[in-house]
Design a binder for these strands. Structure first.
Lengths: 199, 199
DNA sequence: GTCTATACTAGGATAGAC
DNA sequence: GTCTATCCTAGTATAGAC
């Protein structure tokens, strides 16, 4: 018992850090608290992650990877139906929002917290939103919607608005309204294959 | 009544603090930097504002007052046309978003930064969004729109989404898309007086 | 008296050394 | 794990200029 191989020490640290970072904000969490929460030593933490910045980067990196897996899982079965895929992406984001203790999008929160555009957190958060925008644009183009750039911007606004307003107006309400808004957005721009966007 | 030699000392401090708080985030700004920026002494700052928390509260208070004045100015000439008033509120918010150096809604940023629901900042930020929601609901009811609660939630999502996505997708784009989304939302729910929501 | 400027306390931050 | 170095934080108190 005394001797733990801890093959996943890095994971345990990242688990503790992620929870604290999200729940209380990156700037409000000290390294000491992360150490106490995960029960590791300070040297261990700094050996696995060289600095707090790196730990933050790893936190956002893992979330990004998880999000990419989520949308792959959600859109995979709908290959060939890009309109349904768009709605599935919105629905996947909406599922997160319903969770207890939801405190907004981790990337948008990081953006609000770290103003320096050159910081790793800022760049990762910006990249996250831009990749969501690009995904919507790609799918809108595949659906042969007129003006994919406009509709993808609309969808980004709907998703980020859902995430930002949810802590105030309530997760389920925000999720439902956002899904309806997205469906309506797709119907409004018309195009050949938007029948799937009917309520 | 003790006369004050510098009647605007409080204002100057609040100006400096507001700019720093917004540009870099509340938690990233120290009292020392505020003092150096506004050129006042530490004594003065702590006499006018008892603590950093109070200074933050004054910062948000003033923004709230300015915002209330903005919507009063925007909706005043449109009395009797609640649908146009809703669009005017969205347009007023959109104007802010276009500004150079826009870094998101100050209230939403505060919410992201301070997780403690009992803190003054958290409460003021929550109140701000809820009051926007209530304003939309009141106007939607005045316009005799069916389901004012739903349409007001949609409008809140559109506005907060515009504010949150603007730093990433660009202020003007976000502003234009949000105004179009709001107009479409009003047209979609129908009602007797939504012709003003036509593009 | 009213201001600025600075010294100071007490604590918490990151980070490194052992 | 503990201990230390260095820095920054909020906030108070003192010193000195006008």
């Amino acid at each position: 018992m005394s001797r733990r191989p801890t093959p996943d020490a890095s994971e345990r640290i990242l688990d503790a850090a992620s929870r604290l970072f999200y729940d209380r904000g990156i700037n409000s969490v000290g390294m000491q608290e992360i150490i106490e929460t995960c029960g590791c030593g300070k040297n261990m933490l700094y050996r696995e992650f060289g600095s707090k910045d790196e730990l933050v980067a790893a936190y956002l990196d893992r979330l990004e990877t998880e999000w990419q897996a989520t949308i792959t899982r959600a859109t995979g079965p709908l290959a060939g139906d890009p309109v349904a895929q768009i709605l599935a992406v919105v629905a996947a984001a909406a599922d997160d929002v319903r969770a207890d203790g939801y405190r907004g999008c981790a990337f948008l929160n990081t953006l609000a917290e770290t103003a320096d555009p050159n910081s790793a957190g800022h760049r990762q958060a910006t990249k996250h939103v831009k990749s969501l925008q690009a995904l919507f644009r790609r799918l809108a183009r595949a659906a042969q919607l007129p003006d994919p750039a406009t509709v993808s911007d609309e969808l980004v606004i709907i998703v980020t608005g859902m995430q930002s307003s949810a802590p105030v107006i309530g997760g389920p309400r925000a999720a439902n309204r956002a899904r309806q808004l997205a469906a309506r957005s797709l119907r409004a721009v018309g195009g050949p294959a938007t029948s799937a966007a009917a309520d």
